[in-house]
Design a protein around this nucleic acid. Structure first.
Length: 423
RNA sequence: GGAGAGAUGGCCGAGAGGCCGAAGGCGCUCCCCUGCUAAGGGAGUAUGUGCCAAAAGCGCAUCGAGGGUUCGAAUCCCUCUCUCUCCGCCA
């Protein structure tokens, strides 16, 4: 959520900033509502004040043994007035709130203009593209003989599910273990285990609700639970309604979890293979930092994700997402795209975002600033470090041999009992 | 699933219609005192929010959550959530 004070004081600026996201914000309409809110709220609070004072007077009169009937007569119609004013206020506040909840974050100045993926800005490339003296296969052709079955996934659940058996399942687990170990031992993150279902408050806190409900799987339950689309949701919600001790900042969490996405808007795209699944494994990095640290933390977190690709020796590029491609809650996002020889393309394998105080405001996640002694909103960041399913794909395709066998990357062998070749 | 107990500030804990944003204790911060340490004395110490550019100030809201009764609710009533104990079932 954006800062309501920004709307009161610098409405044109907000409007201008939202324009970068192609949002035509109705400032005049907002202003009308906001002015009404102000009137009603002031009126309501005046009435509340009157009720409180009069009630107190009644109490005091009674204590002295005076006749309170005249006082009671005076307040007779106050209750009704107050009730009307209060319900009016609630209505307009929820109206304003739903406008605010539907507005995306303001973009960082460094975010380039643009509409789609095509306008993203390439920042850097790393690694040599592998050269094959044969036609490289894609991960489906490589995977199926080794224990990757989309048929079984479909039988057990539906399309966009997969079953991995044997060394491929082990490989995915090895990838996850390597990532967790690296982030905890070398990058200073705390390993975390969380629920894989979350309630509506949690999803509202990180920004998936109310606007993106159709992207989520829901659990029939009262109250409704949602399958997490990313560990970002449960992990970031650790600090919901919390005032973090300044000494504990920054908080750095790493969490492996399955992720569940309905892919409601993705009909027909990436239907082949493991690229886009309803369920996939991911290792997520989350940082809770002070406002002045967040820009630097964003660079570091991205570097931590990049390091995984480096130690796996997977060629990738880093892109800065343009205005149109940057997610709802984010101010600035770097995507890491790994090279897939089977597609002859770079494909997203990590997305690292700085949300600044946008999620924190929804979450009421704060820290106590020692300079002011006051609670202030934290900044939240997260990034995949990395998506394990897509890492598996990248390894299959980049480490393939002509006979369809797969070399196991050096750093993964210790997690696979020394295995060097999957065949 | 059955039976019971509970939820109050950073923590413990009182409070049972008005004088309660809430006693007391612990903790924490600052000050004083004692050559150091231990002990002692004093002051302060919730959050959100409205009016306001902001501060100050003055309000409003918040005692698990949501409703209700009442002039007035931490306190009474209803619903829900969570925690704990016992029984049953269970990885």
């Amino acid at each position: 959520m954006l800062d309501p004070r920004l709307f009161r004081n610098e409405l044109e600026l907000v409007q201008q900033q939202l324009k970068r996201r192609n949002i035509d914000f109705d400032a005049a309409g907002y202003l009308t509502l906001e002015n009404r809110r102000k009137d009603i709220q002031v009126k309501t609070q005046e009435l509340q004040n009157e009720r409180n004072t009069r009630s107190k007077a009644i109490g005091q009169a009674k204590a002295k043994g005076e006749d309170v009937q005249p006082l009671l007569d005076q307040v007779q119609d106050l209750g009704d007035q107050l009730k009307t004013a209060e319900s009016e206020l609630t209505a307009i506040q929820s109206q304003l709130n739903s406008i605010m909840e539907g507005l995306p974050n303001i973009l960082d100045e460094s975010v380039p203009a643009g509409k789609s993926e095509a306008d993203n800005l390439e920042i850097s490339r790393w690694g040599e593209l592998p050269q094959f003296d044969f036609e490289p296969k894609d991960h489906v052709d490589l995977g199926e003989p080794l224990g990757m079955s989309f048929e079984l996934g479909a039988k057990i659940a539906s399309a966009r599910f997969v079953v991995l058996t044997g060394k491929l399942a082990t490989l995915q687990r090895a990838i996850i273990q390597l990532m967790l170990d690296t982030h905890t031992n070398q990058h200073g993150y705390q390993e975390t285990y969380v629920p894989f279902m979350a309630n509506a408050d949690s999803l509202r806190g990180t920004g998936q609700l109310p606007k993106f409900e159709e992207d989520l799987f829901t659990i029939k339950n009262d109250p409704t639970f949602y399958l997490i689309p990313t560990a970002e949701v449960p992990v970031t919600n650790i600090v919901r309604d919390v005032i973090v001790d300044a000494k504990q900042m920054p908080l750095k969490f790493v969490c492996h979890s399955p992720c569940f996405r309905s892919e409601a808007g993705a009909y027909g795209s990436d239907v082949r293979g493991m690229i886009r699944q309803h369920q996939f494994e991911k290792v997520e990095l989350v940082q809770i930092v002070t406002p002045e640290e967040s820009a630097q933390a964003h660079e570091e977190l991205t570097a931590h994700a990049e390091n995984m690709l480096k130690i796996l020796k997977l060629p990738y590029r880093k892109v800065l997402l343009c205005a149109g491609d940057t997610g709802f809650s984010s101010t600035k996002t770097y995507d890491l795209e790994v090279w897939l020889p089977g597609q002859q393309k770079y494909r997203e394998i990590s997305s690292c975002s700085n949300f600044k105080d946008f999620q924190a405001r929804r979450l009421q996640a704060r820290w106590r600033n020692p300079d002011t002694g006051k609670p202030e909103l934290v900044h939240t960041l997260n990034g995949s470090g990395l998506a394990a399913g897509r890492t598996l794909i990248a390894i299959l395709e980049n480490y393939q041999n002509q006979d369809g066998s797969i070399r196991v990357p050096d750093v993964l062998r210790q997690y696979m009992g020394g295995l060097e070749l999957i065949k």
